[in-house]
Design a protein around this nucleic acid. Structure first.
Lengths: 333, 333
DNA sequence: CGATGCAATGTTAGCGCTAACATTTTGTGA
DNA sequence: TCACAAAATGTTAGCGCTAACATTGCATCG
């Protein structure tokens, strides 16, 4: 900076003023300074700036360390939005989904000096770690948490999973199904819980039977195993439709039914959740619930930056049902 | 820090020494200091530290802004490895895949003060932007680039795409196929080019015909369109197997063949590339080439941190063929 | 034409830490 | 017991920037 000042024939403070768009700088002076900056290829030292202003212009994202479609899309959207606002983004992924890993990760971010944190980790234990962390910086949580403690200072942004599950179940009910099994997501995940509740609510409203097959993970493998367990029930006419907690699970279910020579949707309907890129190209193409992850990412960043506003109401985004070929009216038996 | 020093009854410099594991500190003093740190909940200010040491302990990752399986897995692996080494990671995603976006993104990272950059963006234009950027910090590129200029100071780490394509093609040839069409990836991507070359090399060696159907994107939609264009050739016996440039494309191809009542693998074999989580559960389960992205991430970080070593030989990681149910010997016609 | 006021620029201090050197304490051997 | 070295601790300066105040330049008006 001193070099730039010398070259432009001004004081370092004037250079600083130019850099910070201070109004009281003559146009001619400004040009000289900018010229010198260009000629010298000068870049401001961010550490010094952060030290002097006590602003790091950095936000932290804590996410889960797996290749899940939803969190990943959300993280990308947050990053893009943050960059547009002149913020830097530091990402930390969790090794394991427990409170210890989570507080380690949070520490890592706080050590880094972030001004705020977005947690894209819809796993219960992880979010609970936050309640104990006692952070003094703004926090936005992207998770459909319903039992938020009053004392929790975090802001919440999420897609209404329960509503999505109600849409999916409602679609099957309106087709005439009543024996709708739910392949539920793994325990500990908000999304799994909410989807299960939405399905169950709708089923109880319709006075339909509750048939739940829990999956051990979100992976297709678990869906496949759940599907195999459902084959006999389908054959026996005890299940005419399956609502899988996400599209990976649905893919596994489709596969299991195919292996058992059960035709979808003739013998049994299948519906998923997420709308992956490939869901339209599965055999048959998958009816599912689409989540607008980009919107979630944007909303999360907005919430973080405008966090001063006292409005702590969760920002809820509504998913949409995408009807394709894996659902049809039940066989008239 | 001054508070800690006062509480422990030492000078701030002694606190600094404790924090930096300096050897010349008496055990008792160290304990007092650590105690004071704990009691006060003191955290070092990273900006000040960075300013004093001129080390930011931050590395930048530049990646593409889409939900692709490979880059995402690689980024996660790099982040985990970096954190284990005490580094912070700043991620920037590209809005568009052109040189301008790329240099903007690089500037963003350099402004942030990163000590090194890993580019996980196997797109030609993006990498070319790097050659002009004239960065003075270490750079590792994760991309199967073959025409690296001598002057290019970057280190390269990648999975041998060409070899993977040769494995895939070789597998089909050894099953007895000769009319193997390639649904090639979009132009501008190193991976697409390399896979195309690997396939072509192997086909020329076998004196087999070159039938290529270019896809416009990496998405299943493009694979579907390519598959539809191949249906007639398959029916006419002009194509007995398809090597799709990735598993999304392969999914689309499978779907197109299914719609046309072509059975896989009886009527036509299909092979993909990447080994997605769901590839084993497609109908039929997909033979594909698995890429060890975790290894790539680790190798990239190692290369970045040990970059001082003069050895600029690219680190090449070999993929493995995963044989499943979508490939079989051709119909004896 | 000089007083006045504001715009433009300069000067000084300090953000919180570490490096380098200065000083004090401790331990050792003759 | 004292000199001496080595270990332990303290003191000072400065990393590169911005905030706050000080000064200068310049236009305006009676």
């Amino acid at each position: 900076m001193a070099d730039v000042a010398a070259m432009a024939g001004v004081s370092h403070q004037t250079v600083s003023r130019v850099l910070n768009d201070h109004p009281n700088v003559r146009a001619g002076t400004r040009d000289q300074v900018l010229d010198a900056i260009r000629k010298l290829g000068y870049r401001r030292n961010r550490a010094a700036r952060a030290l002097a202003t006590s602003h790091s212009s950095t936000i932290g994202i804590l996410t889960i360390g797996s290749e899940f479609f939803g969190p990943q899309s959300t993280v990308l959207a947050i990053e893009a939005a943050a960059r547009a606002q002149g913020y830097f983004v530091t990402v930390t992924a969790l090794d394991r989904y427990d409170a210890y890993s989570a507080s380690e990760a949070l520490n890592h971010l706080v050590d880094q000096g972030v001004e705020g944190v977005v947690m894209v980790a819809p796993f219960e234990k992880v979010i609970e770690a936050l309640d104990d962390a006692g952070l003094t910086i703004p926090v936005v949580v992207v998770a459909a948490r319903t039992n938020v403690p009053d004392a929790d200072p975090a802001h919440y942004v999420y897609v209404d999973q329960r509503e999505g599950a109600r849409q999916a179940t409602g679609h099957l009910l309106s087709l005439g199904h009543r024996k709708i099994a739910h392949v539920s997501g793994p325990t500990g995940w908000f999304d799994a819980t909410e989807r299960q509740i939405g399905w169950q609510e709708k089923m109880l409203e319709a006075k339909a039977p509750i048939i739940e097959v829990p999956a051990e993970s979100w992976q297709a493998q678990s869906g496949y195993e759940a599907g195999k367990r459902l084959v006999d029930s389908v054959r026996a006419g005890e299940v005419s439709a399956v609502f899988a907690a996400n599209d990976y699970l649905a893919t596994g279910v489709l596969r299991a039914f195919w292996e058992a020579d059960l035709e979808v949707p003739t013998d049994v309907s299948v519906i998923g959740f997420d709308d992956l890129q490939i869901s339209n190209f599965l055999i048959p193409s998958l009816t599912t619930v689409r989540q607008p992850f980009r919107d979630v990412g944007h909303a999360a960043l907005t919430e973080l930056l405008d966090g001063a506003t006292a409005d702590k109401t969760p920002k809820v985004i509504v998913p949409t049902l995408v009807i394709r070929a894996s659902t049809a009216p039940p066989k008239s038996s």
